[in-house]
Every structure is written in structure tokens, then in C-alpha cells.
Simulated scan of single mutants.
Amino acid sequence: MAERIDMRVWAGRTDPEPDSLRWHQCIQPLTDTSPPGAALLGFASDAGIRRNHGRPGAADGPLAIRRALASLAWHRDGAAFDAGDVACQGDALEDAQGRLAERVATLLDAGHFPIVLGGGHEVAFGSWQGIARHLERQEQRPRLGIINLDAHFDLRDPARVRSSGTPFAQIADECQARDWPFRYACLGVSRASNTRALFQRAESLGVLVREDREFDVRKLDAIVRDVERFIVRCDHLYLTVDLDVLPAHEAPGVSAPAARGVPLALLEPLIETIRDSGKLRLADLAELNPQHDIDSRTARVAARLVHLLTLNR
């Protein structure tokens, strides 16, 4: 069961016309007897951001996303559930990531499609640990692909400190220890925000890299084909979206607003390709910081992404 489920946030307008439901009218609290569906699980943490010397406040992200999602129109055929929050107390990040992993694995075991609402991008290590626990019960060497929409590689060396900047380096180390393939695509990377050492680290790990400056309407089909080729080499997919991949005018409420970024209109076709592959098992959204949001722009983008991910599932 969830650590905390508060359904009071699910409120909004109600329309009198038939077939005019909204999310707040349809989502239910998760129980042990809930049928498989989309399960929203919050990760209320900005401990990793603090360790990474970023702007704290992402611990309030899950609540802000729920509020923005509540009044969106309901177009799902399947069920959706609120699975509550995993909260990080103080700097106890590793404990929180462990509890998140346990919750994600339990949701996957029960047949749910978990969408984790962050929180800093330290959420990624907990999410990955959860899907790894689920898959290792079924397969000896699962072909799990990670697709990260992000301005940053988050491949910093975790030996000194584990933070929101290290999750994929931690995952690479875990894959090596398990003799699992490390398949990682990072799309939307800002060269100005990642050192040469990080680009070299990505190259040494065989990361599929597409920079923010490569994204335009003319090149989008080629990037989609790159993603499709990546997907073919995987049996399972984990999608993680750091909202700082978006331009600052679309996502001002993040720890590190992007000077350039990739517009939502160019990200949505990639997300649809991943969603419709039949291999997406888990997704999370990271870095929403309501303290620095403007007119709830970033929260609204995050809610739209949840809406997009849950269509046709």
C-alpha cells in the first residue's frame, strides 16, 4: 500500500454534458484489489538537487502535477489510480530511493503501469531499481532500455556524492555488476551544460545522444527513426523526462531552466513512439519546482505529458 494517499487534491470543474469526464472524476485511490491500470506514484524529494547544488523545491512537484492534471479531460479506456507518495525525509535519499524501488516493483508485479511524479532526477535511480527488481524475477539478463529526455546526461561520478546528477552513472555501475547490458539514450542534451568529460563518458558507455540543437521539424523524422532503432534492441523500456529539457518559457519551474531546450511540440512525437512501442513499462517525470513556476506553466506541461502517456494504455 502507499505511504500516503490524499485524494483531496483531485478536484476541479464538472461539466453537465454527457461523456465530459475529467481526471478528478475518474482517478481512484490505489488498493490491494485494484485492477491493473495507470498508477501515479509521487516521489517527494529534492535531496539529490540539494546535493547537486541546484534550486530546492522539487519535493512539492508531485502535488503540483496532480493539481494540474485534475481538470484535464478524461480520454482513457482503462483505470487510473493514485498510489500516494514516497517522501524523502531530510537528506535520507538512499532510504527514499529504496522505498520507491519497492513500491515500483510492487506496482509492476501487480500489472500496473507506474508513472512516478518527481521530485528531483534522483528519482531515476529509485525507479530503475524498482523495474530491475521486477524484471530479475522473470529474466536472467533483461534487455531494458532507458530513454531520457533531458538537457543533462546525469552521468557524474557517484563515488564522491550521489545526487540528481549521478543516477545514470549509478545505473551503469549496477548493470555492470549484474552483467546486464546498459542501453541508454539521452535526447535533448545541451552541450553548453555538459562538460567534455561527460560527453566522453557517454561515448564510452555507448549512449545514444541527440543534442538540443539537432531538434527541428526537418530533422525530427530522423531522430524518431533513431529512437525506433534503439527500441528494436530492447524488450522493455523505461522513459524518464527531466522537465529542464524544455525551453525556459515552456518550463520555467525547474532547478536549471534551459537557455535553449527542446519544444514540447517536438518531444511529443518521440513520446508517442515510445508509448506505442508496446514495450514501455515505466515512466517518470522529474525536476518540477513549483516555487519557481510561472502561471503553473511547468506543472501544466507535466500534466499534459501524463495525459499523453496514459492514452491508449
Rank of each mutant, 00 (worst) to 15 (best):
E203V: 01
R218G: 13
G119I: 04
R313L: 15
R160L: 04
A68C: 09
R156M: 01
N289S: 08
I231Y: 07
A39K: 04
F113Y: 04
D91P: 15
A299R: 11
P263D: 14
D91S: 15
L208N: 00
D221R: 12
T14F: 11
E228L: 12
N312D: 14
T310W: 09
R297A: 15
F43I: 03
E102R: 04
F230P: 11
R13P: 08
V116N: 07
D46M: 11
A105L: 06
G165W: 02
S20R: 03
N52K: 01
E272S: 13
A44M: 06
K219N: 13
L40G: 09
I65Q: 12
G126N: 11
L280T: 01
G57Q: 11
D295N: 15
C88W: 12
A83E: 02
L93Y: 01
A172V: 14
E268N: 03
T166N: 06
A222C: 12
Q28D: 09
R8L: 15
N289R: 05
R137T: 09
D15L: 08
G61S: 08
P263S: 15
R76G: 09
E174G: 10
D284A: 09
R50G: 14
G278N: 08
V241P: 00
Q97C: 06
A11P: 03
L93N: 04
W10V: 14
A73F: 14
F168S: 07
R133H: 07
A258H: 00
V207C: 10
A101C: 03
D226W: 00
V254Y: 01
L117E: 00
R304E: 12
P18H: 08
N312T: 05
E287L: 07
G98R: 07
L72I: 07
T298C: 14
A105D: 01
G261N: 02
P252I: 02
R67N: 13
L63F: 10
L280P: 01
P252E: 04
R210Q: 09
I223D: 05
H75I: 10
G12E: 09
A80Q: 05
I115C: 03
A256N: 02
R233S: 04
L308W: 07
W128Q: 10
R191L: 13
A64F: 04
D244L: 00
A59K: 10
A132F: 14
H236A: 12
G165E: 04
V227Y: 01
G48P: 15
V189N: 08
E3Y: 07
